[in-house]
Design a protein around this nucleic acid. Sequence first.
DNA 1: GACTTTAGTCACATTATGTGACTAATTTGC
DNA 2: GCAAATTAGTCACATAATGTGACTAAAGTC
Lengths: 227, 227
Amino acid sequence: MSREPRGKRQRYSVDVVALTPKDDELAVLLERRPAGGRDRSTRWVIPWTEAKTGEGLPDLSQRAIRNSTGTATIWNTQVGAFTGGPHPGDSELSILYLALVPMGQSTVPDEHFAWFRLSELPPLSERQGQMLQEAVAEVRDRLDLDPVAFKLLPATFTLSELQQIYEMLLGRRLHKASFRRALAAAALVEPTDEWRSEGRGRPAQLYRFGPRKRRRSRRGVRFDLLG
Amino acid sequence: MSREPRGKRQRYSVDVVALTPKDDELAVLLERRPAGGRDRSTRWVIPWTEAKTGEGLPDLSQRAIRNSTGTATIWNTQVGAFTGGPHPGDSELSILYLALVPMGQSTVPDEHFAWFRLSELPPLSERQGQMLQEAVAEVRDRLDLDPVAFKLLPATFTLSELQQIYEMLLGRRLHKASFRRALAAAALVEPTDEWRSEGRGRPAQLYRFGPRKRRRSRRGVRFDLLG
DNA sequence: GACTTTAGTCACATTATGTGACTAATTTGC
DNA sequence: GCAAATTAGTCACATAATGTGACTAAAGTC
């Protein structure tokens, strides 16, 4: 029921966790910013934008992603809102977006940005550390509901590359024959007429993420994933 | 990097979609509030609270849920943040929480609250309508990742009741034998020594949602749910 | 006591998945 | 040139999960 003056707008930050595969591991895009206060040093933070205007979330997040990745056509989705712990911008509320950058397309706009593998992260603020954890958990949770694995690959890819993405995200090895049989049954990918010779070994055929031909199966209830 | 005066805090609303099963359908808790302006009439809205203080989201959402449902021990989770369309409180940003109320426990604090089945909703603001849709979609998406079906039932329940909840959420009938076999395999429920005679037919044994005994199976990749 | 209704189980067919071994095509080392 | 190594891709069989109809059990209704 708030009737407030027009100039007084809400303030919050939009934070973007951009992930890409790097050396069989996920890497996150960080930005180097001044530490603030009298401190003349810099520190690495998850890129964020303060929401000052009346801009809606979709536009805000698009802008934030374009600024940090340099590309606009990145798949992204909202993860949630966070209030706990300190934030580098002192924002009280942060809306977290997750962006997935295709392998090999992980360029940076300038020297203020860099990719860090999750195993070699610099220290982050408490809230941003928690947000990063949530973003990574989100990728894994959505793995078989959204085509997140395909968003981490370029438009065409080999089936071995696809399997490696799944193995990275699941944290365990998969059997090649099972993987391909399930993939074929779902009719999710279609072969191109291109082949890639990767140095040693037999060349691999390139595939693209294709429109599904078979209708989604109606499986029974799955209790074994409940926690 | 914002250094702003202490008194100037951000404003946003916390909105709560509380759901409960009612007549083989989901029902949502709405609140009757004055329409605002010169209008002396009332309208039904999704209960919301304005975040004025520096209170964190967990506390805020807990308070909002307690105010509208009268109970504090309800399972709830954050769905996301919304900016699109008008909001009954004119808030620029709404954080949506989903609360699940067990069947038969759908009391209301006072006459300003009432449960509406999804098929007989009153008109809602554009943003709240969208939030309700998202909340319902969230329940279905989480169905086999979180024990949402069990949160819509009282502490003890019959297996037929559990199956009905799943059928309601999935929107299709399930085969009794398959359902129970999968449930037994996951060791998710344990029988009590109570039975319920529901008028006609053989009495049903009551079960409770029990601690899992078997470890979660490590299944292969599922491509057939991808969209 | 026959009929209806709901609970609960069984057995069998079908489908999905785990797994090792196989063939194919290329580079590397000698 | 040719064997070994390396990566791609497929096959066949064993095992496990799921779909399905028919059955038995225990209550109420007439």
